[in-house]
Amino acid sequence: MPEGRSQKQRMLAGDWYCCLDTELEEMRQAARRAVHAHNTCPPDTRGPMAAALATLFRQIGADCLIEAPFHCAYGVNIALGDRVYLNAGCTILDTAPVTIGDGAMLGPSVQIYCAQHATDPGERARGLEIARPVRIGRNAWIGGGAIVMPGVTVGADAIVGAGSVVTRDVAAGDTVVGNPARKR
């Protein structure tokens, strides 16, 4: 890795970085405050999402709705298209860009992970990880409790069955189920 770059710059470039970093911790703390505001605001006051959360995200299309509770690592890497729906309990660990296309729906407790930790125990203990982007295509439906792993793309109009663990890309229009998720 070239010297002189911050851990945040390394993370955003998709290089190995140390997550045990002051600047990254400050960003996570800002996300925690925004998530807390969203999750504790009365629904009548909150609307589709709390203002603090909305200002954190990279992009929010029209008519999006995020149910509470919700959790994200940074928020700044999340881009939502129009009419995106995230049901209660969704978690997005957005160490890399997470793009969710127009009309996509995520069921309750869907988890999207971008961080891939080092496999070497010593490197992992030092906080080394790499961030891989996740893309959810237009009109995709991710069933409740599904987990989408780092670097995965779920194509437009695809369906991921409830409880599935998606470790590989899902082609547009395909339906996958199981652990690991396989084409049905």
Rank of each mutant, 00 (worst) to 15 (best):
T119F: 12
D21Y: 07
M105P: 01
V170A: 02
G127A: 04
D174A: 15
E3W: 03
P43Q: 02
I60R: 11
E67M: 12
G122S: 11
A54L: 15
P43R: 06
A13N: 01
A146K: 06
V84I: 08
I130H: 04
P150M: 04
G127P: 00
I130E: 05
D120E: 08
T40A: 13
L53R: 11
Y17S: 09
T119P: 05
L80W: 00
L93T: 02
R28N: 14
D157L: 01
A162D: 02
V84L: 03
V76S: 11
R33H: 15
R182S: 09
L65S: 12
G47A: 11
S109T: 11
D174F: 10
T167G: 07
D102C: 03
E67K: 08
A68M: 10
T55H: 15
T55Q: 14
L56M: 10
L80S: 11
C90N: 04
N179G: 04
H71Y: 06
S6M: 09
G89V: 03
D169G: 07
D157C: 02
L128S: 04
D21C: 11
T40C: 12
A158N: 06
C18S: 14
Q29S: 13
T40P: 09
A51V: 08
A96N: 03
A79P: 00
W141S: 04
M11N: 02
M11P: 12
A115G: 07
D15R: 06
D157I: 00
I100N: 03
I136T: 12
R10W: 05
C18Q: 14
L24G: 12
Q7H: 10
R10I: 07
L106C: 07
L106V: 02
R58T: 09
S164T: 13
P42Y: 01
R83N: 10
C18W: 15
G143Y: 05
Q116Y: 11
R32F: 14
G151V: 12
G122P: 01
G81V: 07
T55C: 15
A131Q: 00
Y85D: 00
A52R: 13
T91C: 12
I66V: 15
A31L: 13
L53Y: 13
G101C: 00
G145A: 01
A13W: 05
G137C: 10
V76N: 14
G107D: 00
H38C: 12
D15S: 09
Q111S: 09
A68W: 01
N179L: 06
I136M: 00
T167Q: 08
T55N: 15
V176R: 01
V110T: 08
E67W: 15
P133G: 13
N179R: 15
N87A: 07
A118K: 00
D94C: 00
T40S: 12
Y17E: 08
V148C: 03
P133K: 14
G89H: 06
A50C: 15
Y17D: 05
F57D: 04
E3I: 05
M149N: 05
C114N: 02
A181D: 06
L80A: 05
G143P: 00
M1I: 04
G103T: 00
R28K: 15
G81P: 10
V177M: 08
A73S: 10
I112C: 01
A125R: 15
Q7Y: 07
R126C: 09
P97A: 02
M105N: 00
D82T: 04
G137V: 03
M49N: 10
